[in-house]
């Protein structure tokens, strides 16, 4: 009996499959364990590529590109699911999470092929008139955008894709895997030895370092930070997370926000939203929704705050404050 168990664990350990590939404008890695890992990972990769061709804002064949161009189209079940969830997050975060920021992101030049620049106040004010989820109408699978409104699923697409990838791996016989879609991490099950996966949170000032690690199983861990994409003009730094109240990059006193949740799509959306909202408003949202997510905040002063529902899974050399419900 003992020999059989040893043999099985040895077999499982040996059948590890790693994949690294490009999709959704980033680099992705999947590491899966078990005898079926190779075929399961390839199927998951195909699923991510399929979603990429639906959600891309720049690919002329994508549903989102066609929706932005034609303003009214019938969409697939996946696109409908993401749009519906995006509207749900817009309400939950009182507008801090918003997929109608495409015209603003374009003005700031945060799309590949564009030059980064600081737009004029007039340009931003004009673009802001088209912003807000109320400009998106969902009528079963028929989606209509108001004139001049355009959407970008960048804040939820990877979250949705990691949920689908994890589900695909599971459906194809994998129960232990770790996925990273450009830094959006998803742990499927626990490690082959039964212990939790260790997920480090990048130090916003130097991503070769870390501010701490979280021990997780069956959860998504997603971080948003101004350090991830930015440009400098006249000594001023402009990052890619736009506050739809002002049209400018969010200045909320935070360097990064990490969300832990069983719901990948929610984790992705909230990491952006809480970065925009700042520590105080985020703490209030957490108190009202502590069963949905946990969060780690790094402030501009390099203070670390963590919500009490995940504090026991966090280890760090930094001092940290606990946000209580």
């Amino acid at each position: 009996m003992a020999a059989a168990v040893l043999c099985c664990s040895a077999c499982n350990f040996n059948s590890r499959y790693d994949s690294e590939f490009f999709a959704m404008d980033t680099i992705m890695t999947i590491t899966a364990y078990g005898s079926k890992s190779e075929s399961a990972v390839k199927t998951a990769e195909n699923e991510i590529n399929r979603l990429d061709t639906l959600f891309s804002v720049q690919n002329k064949d994508s549903e989102i590109y066609k929706l932005n161009r034609d303003k009214s189209i019938v969409v697939s079940a996946d696109t409908l699911a993401v749009l519906s969830r995006a509207k749900e997050f817009y309400v939950l975060t009182e507008g801090a999470f918003d997929i109608t920021t495409e015209p603003l992101t374009r003005l700031w030049g945060f799309y590949s092929g564009l030059e980064n620049r600081v737009p004029s106040k007039e340009e931003l004010d004009n673009a802001l008139k088209t912003v807000g989820a109320e400009h998106i109408k969902i009528d079963s699978s028929n989606i209509t955008l108001d004139e001049n409104t355009s959407i970008d699923l960048g804040g939820v697409a990877k979250g949705y894709a990691s949920a689908i990838a994890a589900q695909t791996l599971n459906d194809n016989g994998v129960s232990s895997a770790i996925i990273s879609l450009g830094g959006n991490v998803r742990a499927l099950g626990s490690k082959p030895d039964g212990s939790d996966w260790s997920v480090a949170i990048a130090d916003p000032d130097d991503n070769s370092k870390q501010i701490g690690t979280l021990a997780v199983s069956d959860a998504a861990v997603v971080t948003s930070g101004g350090y991830q994409r930015y440009f400098e003009e006249n000594g001023q730094i402009y990052h890619h997370i736009i506050d739809t109240e002002t049209g400018y990059p969010a200045k909320s006193g935070l360097k990064s926000v990490t969300i832990v949740s069983e719901d990948d799509t929610l984790a992705d959306a909230l990491s952006t939203a809480l970065f925009v909202m700042g520590l105080e408003k985020s703490s209030k949202l957490y108190c009202e929704n502590s069963t949905l997510f946990g969060a780690v905040f790094v402030t501009d002063k390099n203070e670390v705050y963590i919500t009490d529902n995940i504090k026991n899974s966090f280890s760090s050399q930094h001092d940290f404050e606990v946000i209580k419900t």
């Binding site: 990273s180 830094g183 991490v185 260790s198 480090a200 949170i201 990048a202 991503n207 861990v221 990490t258």
Partner: peptide
């Protein structure tokens, strides 16, 4: 760690 969030890896 097994993965890192917030950085491409």
């Amino acid at each position: 760690a097994d993965a890192k969030t917030g950085a491409l890896r």
